[in-house]
Structure formats: C-alpha cells, structure tokens
Design a protein around this nucleic acid. Structure first.
Lengths: 236, 236
DNA sequence: CGAAGCCTTGATGCGCCTCAACGTACGTGG
DNA sequence: CCACGTACGTTGAGGCGCATCAAGGCTTCG
C-alpha cells in the first residue's frame, strides 16, 4: 500500500488553484492513488462513469471508437490534468477509452464527491469550466484543421503538438517523451500509418526529423511549422 | 425600446434551471435584449470578449476562420442556448464568428456579471459546465466522423443534424427551418459546394430528399441515416 | 432589366487510401 | 542466450474519391 498522500501533490495544479489547504487535505483523504502500467486501460468507452481521475505522472491516450469500428485519438493527457470527468459534463458513461501511453500514476475519486466539490468550492467549478473550455477550443481548432488542411500539414501539426506537450530536449533535438507509433500519429490525424511512414521518411532524408521505432525526434522544428502552415511542401 | 423583460423568457431554459425567481429577475434587469437581422455578425473571431449572450429566438451560425483563410462551421446554435461565453472558458477573445442564420432575438449581458453569477449560483455553474461538456462531446464526435467517414456520410450526417435541430414537419417531409446553401453544408463537412450539390442531386433523383435554393427537405430520413452509417452508398 | 448570388453538371487530375510484400527490432520462453 | 513469434516500419504499384477547373442556367433583388 501507499504512504499518506501529501497536499504538495496537487496544491499547485490548475484544477485546485485557490482552494484552501484544509479542503485539499479532505479531498486527498478520499482519493485512492494507483499505478497504471503502460498499455493498460483505465476506463473504457461506454462504461458507466463511477469515478473521476487526476493524472499525477505519465501520459494518457484518449481513444474514441466510432460505430463503424475505426478508432481515433482526439488528445493526449499530460500530468496535472483531470480526466474521466464524465459526471461534470452531464453524461453517465465515459465517452472514450483512456489508455496509459506509458507507466502512469493517477489519483482516483468516486463520482459521489463531485457535487459537494463544485457546490462548496466555487473556484473549483470555475477552474474546471475553464479546463473544459480550453479543451473545447482545442478540439474545435483540430476540427477546423482536419476539415481544411492536407494530410501533410495535419501530421506535422500532430508531431509538433506532441513535442510541445511532452518534448524533452536532447543533444539531437526535441524528442517525444513516450512511445509513439506511426499508427498512433495516423489515428490522431485521420490518415493511415503508411502515409505517416512515408512522410516521416521524407522528412528524415530532408533532415527535419529523426525517427525510429516508436520514437520521433525533431531536429528542425521550425521547418515543420512551415509545413504545418502549408508554406512548404514535402517533396515526393 | 423594448418592454420589460419577463422571467418567463428564461425561467425554463436549461442554463437557468433551479435558479430562484428573485435571482432570475435580477439577472434580467441587467440584460439588454436585441434584434439581429439575418446575416449580421453578433461578434467576430479574435474580438475581445466583453459580453455573453443568450439566443431567445432564431438560429446562429458559428464560423471559424483558419489562419490560411478557409472557413469552417463547427455548429449551429438554437434558441435557448447560451453563446459567446468566452469568459467562462478562460479566454478573453471570442474564438469564432457568430452570424445570424436568420432573424434572431438575443439577450446580452456584460461579462462583468459572470463571476458573481457562478459564485452565487452553484447550479448555474453546474448547468453551464454540463452545457459546455455536451458541446465538447459533440465536437469530439464530429472530429471522429471527419477523420474516419467519407464525404457522403458526413454530408448526410450534417443534413440530418440540421433537420433534427431545426426541422419542421410539412406535407412533403421535414424541412430545415432556415436558409442553408450548398456552401454552408460544405463548410460544415470540410468538402466543396460542388460535391454537396452533386450528392443532393443524386439523393433527389433517388427520392430521399427535395432541395432547392437554400432549402432542403427530407422525404426519407431513414435512408439518409443508412447513408450516414455507411450502410448504403449513393450511386454515381 | 441587369447584376449578383446560388445551383448544376461535365472534364480532368492528383492526393492519399488500399493492397501487397518484405525488412527489422523487440521480448519471451525454451 | 538464442530462436522464434509478434509488433512495428518501409516501400512500391495501382486505383478511386473528391478537389479543381470550367461553363452555363436559374432565382432574387435593387
């Protein structure tokens, strides 16, 4: 079992900003902390939502399955974010799968706490609203991109987004901090792994990126930005 | 100028559910009601957000402009919905244009009221969160559709959505209640007006719809659902 | 009555999916 | 530790869906 949870874990995270210490302590008392191994599903689309979560460490892939059986990845969750807050959104089932992109640590609360939380802590409600609002804005931006841009731009955007969100500086450039396959990228951009593979190969020979098995390193991010903006095109 | 606003205008709308009458009255005192002619912009993308709005009557088109200059329509707003609540979402500029799809009546409040509103009326905060959450869910669904479905399915979906949202029963079938051009549909689905025109023509000769200038009538909605689900395909 | 906006329909081409085959790294168990 | 199976990646050939280009007809409104 785990040692006592300290409020330093969550005190400085956006969702809990401006909450007083006693409230935070009370909140942590009711939380369960849990380690999730890479590849494990935390919850599944359609499952009744009984708990909500906070990602303390790691990265989580959100996966939506369409009725036709295709899968799509609308976003990745980084540490410090709330997720699985179906209840807050007024639905009683999780709208997507949550899969650990690598080993993760999460906090888990029962949904029954939620009403109290928003009722007694207006700032928490406001913070959550802002979070959900940002996600909505992001999603709408993605929607517009998907509708108007060519595959090449969307893939460049996806890689850049991942690098911005999870990038680590190394000698060679910025490397994405968890395993990403060609398939993962294609699931984010509505294309196929083949097309992603071809693009990454082309960019590698051009010298903008280096990539290997489930690993992508940006060596010339600026160039990728140009491609993302449609101001430069990959040579066949 | 307008007569006094009565709380019956807003009492039964989702955002205000469970608010007490005195609060509603106070809220209305601070509202300005306004008529918007068809085609007029209520606000513009990027403009600083100083007010938020409630649509009392009509339909509003949300239009996003991409940096590259393409436009995209993520959704239509129906009467009874809040919109332009940028402040709630933690951003200080409107993220898209709002254009009256036909003559509309709206209520307008200054943004300065928002903090009080959520602080003093927890149910309002919860309701708003649920609204934004539903929009997020919708948007993500749309994203998945756009990523995985063929144009034909997306156009069918868009038409069905409009019909469900604004459809009026007539002798001929369900007619969409405001002027919709081919261009509008293509802006919702990330295609071109040409393709939409061809599809509607094909569906018309097949007998699923009737359509004319800025007017679409569903005569066999069930068939369209099949197309939307990819279980049936339009003949060339 | 003219102009502008909306719609239709054809011809053409290309971006990207699909299908196919093979190469390569990983990890697992004997 | 090696051998095998599995998952991931690459690259080619071919074709289709849909954008693009083009031209013309039909409303609606000033």
């Amino acid at each position: 079992m785990l040692q006592k949870l300290d409020i330093s874990l969550i005190r400085d995270l956006p969702p809990f900003r401006d909450m007083d210490e006693s409230a935070l302590r009370a909140l942590l008392m009711q939380a369960r902390s849990q380690r999730i191994a890479k590849g494990v599903h935390i919850f599944i689309q359609g499952q009744p939502a009984r708990e909500f979560f906070l990602l303390l460490d790691g990265h989580i892939r959100v996966v939506k399955l369409t009725p036709q059986g295709d899968q799509f990845v609308p976003r990745y969750i980084s540490s410090g974010e709330l997720f699985g807050i179906a209840m807050a959104l007024g639905v009683d089932a999780y709208p997507a799968d949550a899969v650990a992109a690598r080993d993760c640590v999460i906090l888990v609360w029962p949904n029954t706490l939620w009403p109290d939380l928003v009722a007694n802590h207006p700032t928490f409600a406001t913070n959550t609203l802002a979070t959900v609002g940002k996600r909505l804005a992001e999603t709408q931006l993605q929607l517009a991109e998907l509708a108007t841009e060519r595959v090449e731009q969307r893939v460049a955007n996806a890689v850049l987004k991942l690098a911005k969100q999870t990038g680590k500086k190394t000698a060679e450039g910025i490397v994405i901090d968890f395993p990403v396959s060609r398939q993962d990228i294609s699931d984010m951009t509505g294309t196929t792994l083949h097309t992603v593979s071809r693009l990454l190969s082309a960019w590698e020979t051009a010298g903008w990126v280096k990539s290997g098995r489930q690993k992508i390193t940006l060596t010339d991010g600026h160039r990728l930005v140009l491609i993302a903006h449609g101001k430069e095109r990959t040579q066949g």
